[in-house]
Design a binder for these strands. Structure first.
Lengths: 357, 357
DNA sequence: TCTTGACCAAGACAGGTGTCCCAAGAAAAT
DNA sequence: ATTTTCTTGGGACACCTGTCTTGGTCAAGA
């Protein structure tokens, strides 16, 4: 951490208080404000010695021009507001991490807020008061709420993108094709000889669930299976928490029933792993007795024994597409809203096997 | 979605382009800029009708005063810059989530950047150019680099706090007492009759590792055990990755050796769970043959069978203390740097048992 | 010594906002 | 009808920066 050579004895001359403006800074350097400004903006016609003098002083004082004043002079804020559904689930965080990284590569800073129901208006106002160049939503929110925000964005031509939530009219969105996601899962299990399926946590009336159920149905009918006979669920018996313990409880419910299904499809990896443990505790062998498929392909898929087969979200692809959508809007404000679907990929591991007998 | 009652026919009158200033907005409303400004700042002496007229127009147009211009008038930016070591490990993200939430409660926005080695100067400059009210570091960084930043902060009296990294002179810091963390682990295992311990991933020369080793040593000597006879490690045999597979590899190395230790202490939960699987694959029973303790008490502790005993970091306590340190600095700029240590707590689960025989 | 450049100092303006001030207009009270 | 009180309009200034202009200083060349 050696200080670069300096004509000032650096440790002594450090100003007691922070320098807040180019005027103060110019006084410190002993030059006119305009001269300093010329150095800061790489303008020609300056003596070499002057330039180095100013740059050294910047090193010493850590002075930086006020970005807020710069913005008033017409400079872009180069800031993006990110609205997260939560910061606790690994897939959401992976998206955030990728998003922040990609935006940084393009020179944008990330402002982050977690959206609780009903706060979207306030949060977006705040972002807009900070004159962000774009706003991103990550996760599933109340549809009407986001639709209202998107409406506002469109009427003000504010660049935006909605990641993971489909069905918002007029929105730029990127989302996993969940219909297809479930379809390839069921087809995989059918190929392994399974005909009856237990659903773990796949109930509700959100767009995400409806899409996934429709994917399941589509796969079933294409293979001549009837929905009513092939599908079982015990979701309604427990308070839905979408976590490990919920999966475990569901498994025990299935285990107690007679003639349980041989294959299970879970809402997410947590539930799948909980169920896996539940079935193992009940004396079933995975995958020889029972096959289980998770969703999201998180790191925890490697934690249980056997390791969990799961559906990969293509997070990198999703976020990269979202960033591209954003940049397109920033470059061409008149561009029309677009939706990009991401193809899911089944990652086969050890929790599925051919049906016995 | 219902628009509040309005004298304008809302969907029609929406301006085609975004309103960018109070001047434009005042023209839209049909009032003087000063009058609008008075409404926005809740000044007295205004007719009721005028106030509601302006507020309705705000609803319709979504107009918000430019925060950048406000700051020029002396208003605080109410923004905090957060430097993250990474956004991929769950403990780091939990800290971020808590931090963002607590800051929001106090009215601060969160600017987030991931720091790669060598970028701290640039990132902090950027934060300072955005006139953040404080800067937070979360994670372990290159000591000299952070020390240099802290030095700059102190000379400019920039409020800051370093979470998780000790040993930075002059810094406001909050960190887990890792010495004690390891000490309570070893004491727990000694109480269960263990006398020989395998270390998983606990090698290196970072402050964090040194502290933890010193905690182990302290517990051993207090119980009359010698370090050289009680401690075994195979860390150097593999490329250290601190993940599940690394733990698994270490376990297989211990399994092959003759007379392996009966108790194992891991750097983190991932390694511990990997090792747990590795030992089980090698034919050992956990916890009857072998006891294992993780570190961090993440959610994944519940994934393996048996569930993993681990040390809780007290993330909430840590972050809350950090926020308090920040606020103290903002309120009293002359306050001296302080360090707050957080007490670790051993969470006993199923992966430890009394030593056989 | 005088001219010519090269360089810098100093002033002015714009950008959006809050606030102070004074004048103008409208409504209310006399 | 006149006066008083309420309310609004409009100008001015400060905040910080980049940029344009003008004027000044100093050294080098003629």
């Amino acid at each position: 951490m050696s200080t670069p050579p300096s004509s000032f004895s650096s440790s002594q001359r450090k100003p007691a208080t922070r320098i807040r403006s180019t005027a103060e800074f110019a006084k410190y350097v002993g030059l006119a404000r305009t001269t300093v400004s010329r150095v800061l903006n790489d303008q020609p016609g300056l003596k070499e010695a002057t330039v180095t003098k100013v740059k050294q002083a910047m090193e010493e004082t850590g002075f930086t021009p006020n970005a807020y004043a710069l913005h008033l002079k017409g400079k872009k804020t180069a800031t993006v507001g990110i609205c997260m559904e939560n910061l606790l689930t690994p897939p959401a965080v992976r998206k955030l991490a990728r998003l922040q990284q990609k935006l940084k590569e393009r020179g944008f800073s990330s402002l982050i807020e977690v959206l609780t129901p009903g706060t979207s208006k306030e949060v977006c106002r705040h972002f807009l008061s900070l004159r962000v160049d774009a706003i991103v939503f990550v996760g599933h929110f109340i549809e009407e709420e986001i639709a209202a925000r998107v409406n506002e964005f469109n009427s003000q031509s504010t660049p935006h993108v909605v990641i993971d939530q489909l069905g918002i009219p007029g929105a730029n969105s990127v989302a996993l094709d969940r219909v297809k996601g479930m379809k390839i899962v069921i087809e995989h299990l059918i190929a392994l000889g399974h005909t009856r399926f237990g659903l773990l946590g796949l109930s509700g009336s959100t767009r995400s669930i409806i899409d996934r159920l429709s994917g399941i149905e589509s796969a079933l009918t294409e293979h001549g299976l009837s929905k009513s006979e092939s599908i079982l669920t015990h979701d309604s018996k427990f308070i839905r928490k979408n976590d490990f313990d919920y999966g475990r409880a569901l498994a025990s419910a299935f285990s107690c029933a007679k003639n349980p299904p041989t294959a299970y499809v879970a809402l997410n990896d947590e539930i799948a792993i909980g169920a896996l443990h539940g079935f193992q505790d009940a004396g079933f062998k995975v995958p020889s007795d029972i096959s289980i498929v998770g969703f999201n392909n998180q790191d925890i898929c490697l934690m249980p024994k056997p390791v969990l087969t799961s559906v990969d979200q293509g997070i990198e692809e999703t976020v990269d597409a979202a960033v591209n959508l954003l940049l397109d809007q920033i470059d061409r404000p008149s561009i029309k809203p677009r939706t990009k679907m991401i193809e899911p990929i089944l990652i086969e591991r050890g929790s599925c096997a051919r049906r016995k007998k």
